[in-house]
């Protein structure tokens, strides 16, 4: 394998780990509310700017930035669920599908978040977060791996593992899973389903916010960086959209594949690669590469 190819794949894995986290954030919301959160990208952006604010104007150590951002973006997600999702579902009659109104509301949220951030003075110019770790790249032969990239992958994988343990081993996590898999049964067994949905939106916000801190050093910060959601959507589709481990694999796949497509077919194809992948996957296998049979809601 040539050095160039190795570098391309390594960089793809690093960005892919971030796509995987955003995809996870989208998928857990989808599992609990059957709607796509198109504001996830903007929550990533807000997370990055919260981190920038604390780095620029306080002397908080880097590791402490993560919990601060996590709390902030959890609050955004949970508050949005209370303020928008609850009233929408309450006002819809049972046989109507709330999917489209919720999607529109997330578009509204994304405009609001962009609108707020844009008014803050230091968002007019591109900014960057400092790298997570500094130091010379690790060399394996001719191939070098950046410590910062390694840190992104390690932290994302740790986060993903943490969520996996949370969802499968803790009481709250299992209650969350139960209430999204079968709300009626969960309700009957005493789980407060409505509150569970709020927590899910909060956790989704948290995941996206942490992504912001992770990509901050790698991508420039602009109020429009939320556009990365399109790639994350592709990752989620490849993964089957309702399949958590699938979307993680999808994230890495798309990070690497996007770069490979650009390498083989020319850099102008990088932008369109995620969309082609979505179409190809859905046409050939409508439930995604790792999805089970399509889940049909009985009315």
């Amino acid at each position: 394998m040539s050095t160039t190819l190795a570098l391309i794949i390594i960089s793809g894995i690093a960005t892919g780990s971030v796509y995987a986290l955003i995809a996870l954030s989208i998928v857990i919301v989808y599992k609990s509310s059957e709607a796509v959160n198109f504001a996830a990208g903007e929550v990533v952006m807000v997370g990055a700017y919260i981190a920038l604010f604390f780095i620029v104007s306080t002397s908080v150590p880097y590791w402490l930035i993560f919990p601060i951002v996590a709390i902030g973006t959890f609050a955004i997600g949970a508050a949005f669920e209370r303020a928008a999702i609850v009233p929408i579902i309450r006002r819809m009659s049972a046989r109507e599908n709330p999917l489209i109104p919720i999607v529109i509301a997330t578009f509204g949220l994304s405009l609001m978040l962009k609108g707020i951030v844009r008014v803050i003075p230091y968002t007019e110019q591109v900014r960057s977060l400092p790298p997570l770790v500094r130091g010379a790249p690790i060399r394996i032969g001719d191939v070098m791996i950046l410590r910062a990239d390694l840190a992104i992958v390690v932290i994302s994988v740790l986060f993903i593992l943490g969520f996996w343990i949370f969802f499968t081993r803790t009481l709250l996590g299992r209650a969350l899973q139960a209430s999204s898999q079968n709300p009626l049964c969960a309700q009957l067994s005493g789980i407060p389903v409505a509150r569970m949905r709020m927590i899910v939106w909060g956790i989704a916000g948290l995941m996206a916010g942490v992504c912001g801190v992770l990509v901050g050093p790698k991508l420039g910060l602009t109020p429009d960086m939320g556009g990365v959601i399109m790639v994350a959507l592709a990752a989620a589709v490849i993964g089957g959209f309702s399949n958590l481990p699938g979307s993680i694999v999808g994230g890495f796949t798309i990070g690497v594949l996007q770069n490979l497509i650009g390498y083989w077919f020319g850099s102008e194809t990088i932008a369109v690669a995620p969309f082609i992948m979505i179409m190809v996957v859905l046409v050939l296998r409508p439930q995604g590469l790792f999805g089970g049979p399509v889940h049909v809601k009985k009315v």
Binding site: L7, I8, S267, I270
Partner: peptide, 20 residues
């Protein structure tokens, strides 16, 4: 002559192509 769209997230490929 490499393309980098305005919303690019990973510019490894174009930069390496120019380098090579």
């Amino acid at each position: 002559n490499e393309i980098i769209p305005n919303n690019a997230t990973d510019v490894t490929v174009p930069v390496l192509n120019v380098q090579s």
